[in-house]
């Protein structure tokens, strides 16, 4: 089955990351790279997103398109990246996510086949 992992950052996580020294930050990025390398056979694509403040949202349910600055949900949590994976089932996806070394929330969403 195919799933998309939506990586969700919290304000606290972003602040903690900012507070890291250069060497520690380098190490944190390495851990993420290691995770991707470890699961390379299951990963089909994905990307890190630019920060939520760069987002633009368009609402089409109000007559004319309404263009708004920011992500579609305002809040302390924001999607910061996504990865498409192909695994046997939800348990395998859960197993992968259990060792994710970065942002504190991950949503697992199945793709329509």
């Amino acid at each position: 089955m195919k799933y998309v992992l939506l990586f969700v950052e919290t304000e606290e996580f972003a602040a903690d990351l900012d507070a890291l020294g250069p060497a520690e930050r380098e190490r944190a990025y390495e851990r993420v790279d290691e995770w991707f390398a470890e699961h390379a056979d299951k990963i089909r694509g994905g990307a890190k997103l630019r920060p939520a403040e760069t987002a633009t949202t368009v609402r089409l349910d109000r007559g004319e398109p309404v263009i708004v600055d920011g992500p579609f949900v305002e809040g302390k949590e924001a999607v910061s990246g996504y990865t498409e994976i192909e695994v046997a089932d939800l348990d395998e996806a859960l197993r992968m996510v259990a060792t994710w070394p970065a942002c504190p929330v991950v949503e697992i969403r199945p793709l329509e086949s």
């Binding site: 799933y3 089932d89 939800l90 348990d91 996806a93 197993r95 697992i108």
Partner: peptide, 12 residues
Amino acid sequence: AGIPYRIPGDDQ
């Protein structure tokens, strides 16, 4: 969501 029909592996 692909919830499997099986006994979880040892790690789970």
